[in-house]
């Protein structure tokens, strides 16, 4: 793309927020875990938004991409732990495996399900995560239902201290980097033909086709991109942070629902939305679990209803309309 710096201004508030999260976490005692949780939710929203927000299609099986990403990292570490000269390269191989596995799964799911429209697509994807979980358990691949624990391998490769820093610090930094990268890709898509094609098909798929847009191609592009970030997120936030993986935990539909809430709350299809949604969701979940333990999930239902009634375009969607015509306009997207 030709250099036009104003195009990238909307990234400024996003990156300032991620930097602030990093600084607060690393400088204030006791804040790192909270910031890590918020970063995870922001990254989850940012990744899912590329598909849900930009195409308007709801993928209920989305968590499966995080799941296979987690397995990618787990497999990389356990299978290659004996190759000593790899060093830090093993993490890169793990991330690459996560990307490859998420891509393959998204191609398989997308090739079938993306031929369906709207609600039919959503229904078709509901079983993907559960199906994959039972496949792993039933076929006994990758240790089946016993899962994989690779704390020992990490300690063996990096030594106890580095391995510990890896899971308590670097994994979270990686999550922040993934969130930032997903935000960049979102903006890049928005400003390119891909974004225009996705807007068109989200608004009216038949009209988009008649305008010359190969809708299936663009849906698959968004789907794979979104899945790749989910895979990376699983590999870092789940595999590196907690060095084990059990099928029932990583294919839990609960995370898909959280991702949907974050995207809709912040503003589907906006750049800033997943960040705002992730922060609000993460913070309220955190404080509700302290103030009213056990109620945090119950309270979300009324909150979601309120959002849908009062801010159907999400918080950032509403904000965008407010700042239209002001100097802030070019920073809010």
């Amino acid at each position: 793309m030709r250099a036009d710096p104003t195009k990238y201004y909307p990234l400024i508030p996003v990156y300032v927020a991620y930097l602030a999260m990093f600084l607060i976490g690393s400088n204030m005692t006791g804040m790192w875990q909270l910031m890590a949780m918020l970063a995870f939710y922001c990254a989850l929203g940012q990744a899912f938004n590329i598909f849900l927000g930009m195409t308007g299609y709801v993928d209920f099986g989305y968590v499966a991409f995080l799941g296979v990403g987690t397995y990618g990292m787990a497999l990389g570490i356990t299978k290659l732990a004996h190759v000593e000269e790899l060093g830090i390269g093993i993490i890169i191989i793990g991330l690459a495996l996560a990307v490859v596995m998420a891509t393959l799964l998204s191609l398989a799911v997308g090739a079938v399900a993306l031929r369906l429209r709207g609600a039919y697509f959503a229904i078709a994807t509901i079983g993907v995560n559960e199906g994959f979980r039972y496949f792993i358990e039933g076929a006994k691949i990758w240790n089946g239902s016993e899962g994989m624990i690779f704390t020992a391998e990490l300690n063996q490769i990096f030594g106890r201290e580095t391995a510990s820093a890896l899971s308590t610090f670097w994994a979270d930094v990686l999550v922040l980097i993934i969130a930032a990268a997903a935000a960049f890709v979102t903006l890049y898509y928005m400003k390119s033909k891909i974004g225009y094609a996705l807007t068109a098909l989200r608004e009216d798929e038949d009209a988009a086709k008649v305008m010359g847009i190969h809708v299936t191609k663009y849906k698959i592009i968004a789907f794979i991109t979104s899945a790749v970030f989910a895979g990376l997120l699983g590999a870092s936030a789940w595999a590196l942070k907690t060095p084990y993986v059990f099928p029932p935990e990583v294919f839990e539909i609960h995370y898909t629902v959280e991702a949907i809430i974050i995207v809709l709350l912040g503003g589907a299809g906006t750049l800033l939305g997943p960040l705002v949604g992730g922060l609000i969701y993460g913070l309220s979940k955190y404080y509700l679990s302290i103030v009213l333990p056990g109620f945090q999930l119950l309270i979300f239902a009324p909150i979601i209803i309120l959002i849908i009634v009062f801010f159907p375009e999400g918080i950032v969607g509403m904000l965008k309309n407010r700042v239209k015509g002001t100097a802030l306009e070019q920073y809010v997207l």
Binding site: Y196, A200, E203, A207, A208, M211, I213
Partner: peptide
């Protein structure tokens, strides 16, 4: 059948992007 959320300018630009000029 406009692409409702996009601006008028963006709607028309979509025509140019994917039409014969492609």
């Amino acid at each position: 059948r406009p692409f409702s959320s996009a601006t008028v300018r963006e709607n028309i630009a979509i025509g140019a992007m994917f039409g014969t000029l492609g």
